[in-house]
Design a protein around this nucleic acid. Structure first.
Lengths: 137, 137, 137, 137
DNA sequence: GTGGTCTAGACCACA
DNA sequence: GTGGTCTAGACCACG
């Protein structure tokens, strides 16, 4: 499995795990229905306590990314966001704002920012396509 | 002054302050010899305890970004080297990626995402203008 | 049969089963020699794993409330002493107090509380009647 | 302070703490504005970890019983329930139902149950009166 | 085997 | 001093 911890990053271990799963789900490496590693095996491999992995998974469940089924495991949920449109748009704006604030701090011009957005979008699209062809196998 | 706190970010207040000064110094918006706001006025404006601002400044001094001179204030030190361009771009890409991941989970199309980016950019530009006229006072 | 599970109570399923049998035996609703439902039918009706019912019965056996006879089933043992009246009343008062505390926090007046008690009592009586006619089948 | 733990009850320590505060607030022993013991002193006295007390307090905050203010402490909040009426009534019914279920298991008649309700109500009222005269001091 | 909970210890931000 | 968070270990319910 792809998850790895950077012990020097200062970021909480459970957040690193959650973020990597989120990223993989967003980029198509993990598709709805896919299973995540069990809590205990993953905890052992990453050399963290089971609770740390459990917290990551539970965080993902709160965000609607995965479904945890006791006795079965943790699977990527179909991304039918149960959010109200207004809440959804607010979350989107917040995400964009966070990036804009960072860009502002780094003195990036609007054009430079848009260039980067377009460039990263292409990367994500490519991954989506790869995921689609993977799933045809 | 440009420093602003995001109370919902979860990041420690003193780190937000230090980071913003660091970025401003790294990107040339603050030059060696420039003065930072006094501890008391800044603490008042940001509505935090003076200790919090003091901790931020002391953090910056430890990193060699500024020099604290008792009785005078806090000035940008000259030994400060700007962020390498590759590091800066990596930070920008990470910020953009985070927003794109969020957008994907919220099932936003590329067009919708770009629309929001442009809309929020406008808002930020307006704020900048307002900030500039404020600073004329 | 009278056993019902409250899936939202947070209490373990096997404990709910054991407790209800215990109370029924203690209050005379089940007499020494009476048979309990078979493990498999009860598990099916309550929609739990057979192990869960088995654990409840085994718990009851450990406490001397019932006897498990392989091939026959599970019967109320005769050494069973009913709850002392003082203990029973204490349990009742505790249950009532918990409801009163909740009512106080929700700022319900005494009259409002009594109204709800009467209303819910009626609902319970109806259920009892329905249960009785069900059991005639 | 009045809080005590029963180590043999099997109930989680944090729930025992929360329940006792809740009970005291409901019966008038603690009035809005009163301070609860600090997390650390109480943890020391009860010989549990600080997190256990913290969890109890945080539970109480979620239920709207108290307000936790970092750097200050934990105070009984003015009981302006921010709940919708429908939610409030549902909670009330659930509380009453729990008591009725217990009564049913203990084979209490409706009249016996109502008697106990009235008896316990009187006890709560007396405490409220005492609390009022206490506060006049 | 699965996930869930309670308690604990260490460290952090903040006043 | 205050409360808050992350990680951990032990135990439990359930399939």
């Amino acid at each position: 499995m792809f998850i790895e911890l950077n012990y020097r990053s200062g970021k909480a271990a459970y957040l690193q795990i959650a973020e990597q799963v989120k990223y993989a789900a967003a980029s198509g490496s993990l598709l709805p229905g896919d299973s995540l590693p069990g809590i205990r095996p993953l905890a052992e491999r990453l050399e963290v306590n089971r609770n740390t992995v459990a917290k990551a998974y539970s965080e993902l469940e709160k965000e609607g990314i995965v479904e945890i089924i006791t006795g079965i495991g943790c699977i990527i949920s179909k991304s039918n966001s149960p959010l109200k449109k207004s809440v959804r748009n607010k979350l989107l704006e917040e995400a964009v704002d966070a990036a804009l604030v960072q860009a502002h701090h780094l003195q990036a011009s609007e054009d430079e920012f848009l260039d980067i957005v377009r460039k990263r979008m292409k990367t994500f699209s490519k991954r989506d396509l790869r995921a689609k062809s993977d799933s045809k196998k």
